[in-house]
C-alpha cells in the first residue's frame, strides 16, 4: 500500500474481546492497518470475521480492549473528528416515522452543517439519488432500495473526509447500484474522500477500490493495493476439445511447446503468466495447422475473488462471500467447426 501519503485511518494492534457464557471471545485480534488519504479501500471477510466489530471500534461505538485508532490523526472521541466521518451501516436504522427530507436535515444538523447548507445538501442528494417524489413520505414506507439510498445520503450529507460504508449496495437493483456508485465516485474525486467499504460483493468492489484488506477470525490476512495483487495474480488458458482424441492431440502440442497442462474431461488447462496471449496465439496456430476440433479457448485471469477465496481457504474458513459471475476473455467462437 502507498505509505507516502498520510493515512486517514490508522489502526494499531487493535483488539476487542467480548465476555460470553463460554468465556472471553476475541472478535478482533491485534489488528493493524492503514488507509491512505483519498484512497478507497475494500474491507472483506466472511460473516463473523470481525468486519463490523472493527468498523464499530473505528467509529467509537464499541470500546476497544486494547490498541489505538487514529482518524485523520485524531481520536474518534474528538467531536471535530466526528464531523468529518460518514457512516452507512449494513442494516437500515432510521426513525421510520420521519420523512426523508426531515431525516436528512436532522442528520445534517447533527453533523454541524449550518441550516442553509443543510437544506441545500439535502435537496442536492435527494435529486442525485432520484428520491424527489418520495422526500415527503415516511421512511417506514420506503422500499429497501430507497432506504439504502437514504442511508447513503445521510452518510455523505456533510461531505465527510472519511467515509465508512457497510454493504452499501446490498438490496439495490443494478440501476440504483450504478447511481450510488456514481455519486460515491464523484464525491471521492471532488473531495479526496477516504473510503473504507465493507462488502461481500468482491466483483463490485474490484471496480471501485484502490486497496483491499481481508480479515478472517479477527485477524488481517491480506493488506495490499489492487495493483500489487494484479501483478501477482496468474492466468490460465483453457481449451475445450470436442472429443478425447483431440484432447490427446492438444496435450501433445502443449508438451511440444515445453508447457505443462492438466486435463479435466475434454478440457485442457495450462497455467500462464504475463505471456498468456503469446502462448494462446502459438497454440492456436498449431491447432489450426493440425486440424483439431476445438469448441472454445479462453484466457482466464485469476480474479480478486479467486485471490480472496484462496486466502480464506488457506486460513481454514468456509466461504460465505457471494461469488461473482465469471467473465471470460472468450475466443471460443473462432475455433468452432
Amino acid at each position: 500500500m502507498d505509505t507516502e501519503i498520510r493515512p486517514s485511518i490508522e489502526v494499531k494492534n487493535l483488539t476487542k474481546e467480548f465476555s460470553t457464557s463460554r468465556g472471553l471471545f476475541r472478535a478482533v485480534d491485534n489488528v493493524s492497518f492503514k488507509v491512505s488519504s483519498g484512497k478507497i479501500c475494500g474491507f472483506v471477510g466472511p460473516n463473523g470475521a470481525g468486519k463490523s466489530t472493527t468498523i464499530k471500534l473505528l467509529l467509537g461505538l464499541l470500546q476497544s480492549t486494547s490498541g489505538d485508532i487514529k482518524l485523520n490523526g485524531g481520536s474518534i472521541n474528538d467531536s471535530e473528528i466526528r464531523k468529518i466521518i460518514g457512516y452507512m451501516p449494513e442494516k437500515d436504522t432510521f426513525y421510520e416515522d420521519m420523512n426523508a427530507k426531515d431525516y436528512l436535515l436532522m442528520m445534517a444538523s447533527l453533523s454541524g452543517l449550518p441550516s442553509n447548507l443543510a437544506k441545500e445538501r439535502t435537496e442536492t442528494l435527494i435529486n442525485a439519488l432520484g428520491l424527489e417524489e418520495a422526500k415527503k413520505r415516511a421512511i417506514g414506507r420506503f422500499s429497501s432500495g430507497m432506504k439504502k439510498k437514504i442511508s447513503f445520503a445521510q452518510a455523505i450529507i456533510h461531505n465527510p473526509k472519511i467515509l465508512i460504508l457497510d454493504e452499501p449496495t446490498a438490496n439495490l437493483d443494478p440501476i440504483a447500484q450504478e447511481q450510488l456508485i456514481g455519486v460515491l465516485k464523484e464525491m471521492c474525486k471532488k473531495n479526496n474522500t477516504t473510503v473504507l467499504i465493507s462488502s461481500h460483493h468482491i466483483e463490485e468492489l474490484e471496480k471501485l477500490i484502490d486497496d483491499i484488506i481481508v480479515i478472517n477470525h479477527g485477524r488481517i490476512i491480506l493488506d495490499a493495493s489492487l495493483n500489487e495483487i494484479k501483478q501477482k495474480t496468474s492466468k490460465t488458458i483453457e481449451i475445450l476439445a470436442t472429443n478425447q482424441n483431440d484432447v490427446t492431440k492438444i496435450l501433445a502440442i502443449v508438451k511440444k511447446l515445453g508447457l505443462e497442462a492438466t486435463q479435466t474431461d475434454s478440457k485442457v488447462i495450462l497455467p500462464a503468466k504475463q505471456d498468456a496471449a503469446k502462448i494462446q496465439k502459438t497454440i492456436m496456430q498449431a491447432i489450426v495447422k493440425e486440424n483439431i476440433n476445438v469448441s472454445n479457448m479462453t484466457i482466464k485471469d485469476e480474479s480478486l475473488w479467486d485471490v480472496v477465496l484462496g486466502l480464506l481457504k488457506d486460513d481454514g474458513k468456509t466461504i460465505e462471500i457471494k461469488e461473482p459471475e465469471k467473465k471470460e476473455d472468450n475466443l471460443g467462437g473462432m475455433f468452432k467447426r
Partner: peptide, 14 residues
Amino acid sequence: NSGTALMLFTRPLS
C-alpha cells in the same frame, strides 16, 4: 435496540 442510536453517535453528538 433499533440501531437509531448507532447513526446518531457517529455524528458529533456525545
